[in-house]
Amino acid sequence: MREVVRSFHNKDLGNGRQTSFWFDNWLDRGVLVNVLGERGMVDMGINRSATVEEALQSVRRRRRHKASLLNDIEADLILVKEKLRSEVSDTNIWRRKSGFKPKFSTYETWSLLRSPGVVCDWSSGIWFTNVTPKFAFVTWLAVRDRLSTMDRIVKWDPGAVEMCVLCKNASETRSHLFFECSYSAQVWEYLMKGVLCNDYTSAWSELLILINDERMENKKKFCLIYALQATVHALWRERNRIKHEENPMPIEILMKLLEKGNGSDTCVYGEWVVKGSLREFVVNNRKGGRMFLVSDGCTHGELLEMALEDYGLDKKIEKMVLTYSLLDVILQQMAPDTPHMHVTNDRQVRNLIE
């Protein structure tokens, strides 16, 4: 390792005062102690601790050596002595892609040290601006085939059942789970067939190509990538729920949750109104009925500010109440007098997102 480090550092001579004659790399032949060895100090008659200036300016008669290498170095020293500049300090120079330069670059040093691997052609389809970290992380594991699917589990647990947890009809592999499985294929088709149209596919390998297609329109591409990540995360979570013997979620609810931005990552401006014995959430279309994204870590204050800005409301408003709606399939299972959901503090914002 020491030799590797030395190969990245040279000395550009000025007056020779800050450069070790024997241990710095200032001559084209390399570090002289490595070229001549310890014996070279005796043969050359130059002290071990000498600087280049001390070695060249000292009263020292040029020696005639039996070894041609020593005679060549003696000739080099005469040329170097003529080029010394007493008013200029020595400079440390570092190996860069374009040669040795006075400025050190960590990035270029790392690039020169490492062995370049194959360029990852799918990373931009996983890590991008506004990514939801938990979605991206699970998708990243899936792309690298590092999720604990049953085909991988049986390798260290021969007694495990390799059958797909969701459909129970085939061996559970990454590609089967996303989206050859009849269960996951139904979810993916529901979400994306209308968006992708002629580009629709449920083959994992083709989807990885599609999310990096530069020709695809940006909004369509964003919808595809975000939907893919949200669906992979939701299916993997549901798969684990079933595997650990929890009650499965009806596929209709799962599809609706994904269709509405995973059921909690969006807020709509509106209000709850009482109609007879029922409470109903009514979107305020005068304000656009638009939706805005709520990211992990969002605070109640940020949520209020976002609503004021997004819907052009007067920022002098002293009080504003935020509520959110539930899916029809969930409301049908609740009592008619269930109170509406207010968002009034950071904890409730976290509940909204989670």
Rank of each mutant, 00 (worst) to 15 (best):
R2K: 09
R6P: 00
S7N: 14
H9Q: 14
G16C: 04
D24V: 12
D24H: 08
W26C: 09
G30M: 03
V31A: 08
L36E: 07
E38F: 01
G40L: 05
V42Y: 09
I46M: 05
I46P: 00
T51V: 05
E53A: 14
R64E: 06
H65F: 15
K66R: 11
I78A: 12
E87L: 02
G99C: 02
F100Y: 12
F100C: 05
K101S: 07
P102R: 14
F104R: 05
S105D: 00
V118Y: 11
S124M: 07
G125C: 04
W127C: 05
L141E: 08
L141N: 10
M150S: 14
D151E: 12
W156S: 14
P158H: 10
S171G: 10
H176R: 01
W188R: 09
W188M: 08
Y190S: 11
A203N: 09
E206F: 08
M216L: 07
K219N: 12
Q229N: 04
H244N: 10
E245I: 03
E245N: 15
I251L: 15
L254P: 07
L254R: 10
L258F: 13
T266P: 00
V268N: 12
K275E: 03
S277V: 06
N284E: 13
D314F: 03
I317W: 03
I317L: 04
L327T: 10
D328R: 03
M334C: 13
T338L: 09
M341A: 13
D346N: 02
